[in-house]
Design a protein around this nucleic acid. Structure first.
Length: 279
DNA sequence: CCTGCTACCTGATGGC
DNA sequence: TGCCATCAGGTAGCAG
């Protein structure tokens, strides 16, 4: 589910809940969520450590500990759930009748943080340093960081020859953009998703940079409008559809020109765009 | 090195 | 009502 704006909103809400708290113990209920690391490794690593800070890079959540860090990645469907104490966690988590699905739980001094993903794509890992986590170490410029400048973005575009859509999804160039916001950024910049990166004129590259930043900022605002509520396992961001201009709107009129939005497949994923105004 | 494809999982939805 | 196919906001791993 989440791309950069959703993960950022989760991190901002999570920080005051866990910052400075000690991890009493780790419950790994579904070891697949720690794969390829062993559940016992994750537990022993984190047990007794204090969470210094919570940060985000790309779509990763980082819990910086006294020694090393934990990374959480939600992939498509992962999310967080919060229990006010161990008793409530034991009562609710993974019970057959109306239980709350939890894969990994960090039992803190005050409260229990659960990582949940029924589909088991999401991951929780432990690392001695950020450099040891391959996915994290290979991330490119974070799309909402100050280092994501039009100049550096332009250089990256010029060095590649891929279709714009594929380029935007490549986390090793620009980190944090996923399927939804890549479509939205291209729609806003009026650029065709199949255009090759190196063919963009400087003015078009600047337009795309600006579009990415405004699309992500707008989405973040929307995500923060009603703060995440980890206590409700059903909770998810509301109202995001209302800000979407292309994604998920196949056949509906383009909000700029009225022509129907089209859906095509690129790298096995859906791309939505307007053939009339995206060139 | 770069790029493109598949596998990984589960659940919701829609057509027949 | 089933039952099957398709789709889902992501990335690691592998082949060419």
């Amino acid at each position: 589910m989440p791309e950069l704006p959703e993960v950022e909103a989760v991190v901002r809400t999570l920080r005051p809940l866990v910052q400075g708290r000690r991890i009493r113990c780790v419950h790994v209920l579904h070891p697949i969520a720690a794969k390829p690391q062993a559940a016992a490794y994750l537990s022993r690593f984190a047990q007794g450590q204090r969470i210094r800070t919570v940060e985000r890079k790309g779509k990763y959540v980082l819990l910086l500990l006294d020694r090393g860090l934990l990374t959480m990645h939600f992939r498509l469907d992962g999310q967080l759930v919060w229990f006010s104490n161990a008793k409530e966690f034991l009562r609710c988590a993974n019970r057959t009748e109306s239980g709350v699905h939890v894969d990994v739980a960090l039992e803190l001094e005050k409260g229990v943080l659960g990582f949940a993903d029924r589909r088991h794509f999401g991951r929780v890992h432990a690392w001695d340093s950020a450099a040891k986590c391959p996915g994290l170490a290979e991330l490119g410029l974070d799309a909402l960081s100050p280092s994501f400048t039009p100049t550096r973005f332009g250089e990256l575009l010029y060095r590649s020859k891929r279709p714009l859509k594929d380029f935007l999804l490549d986390q090793s160039r620009v980190a944090g953009i996923g399927n939804i916001y890549s479509c939205e950024s291209l729609w806003r910049a009026r650029l065709h998703p199949r255009r090759r990166t190196h063919t963009l004129k400087p003015e078009e590259a600047r337009r795309l940079h600006k579009a990415i930043v405004s699309v992500l900022r707008r989405a973040l605002e929307c995500c923060l409008h009603q703060a995440p509520d980890f206590r409700n396992p059903q909770w998810w961001f509301q109202g995001l559809e209302t800000i979407l201009r292309a994604y998920g709107r196949e056949g509906k009129p383009c909000r700029r020109c009225g022509e129907p939005i089209r859906r095509i497949a690129q790298s096995g994923r859906s791309t939505y765009y307007c053939a009339h105004c995206q060139k």
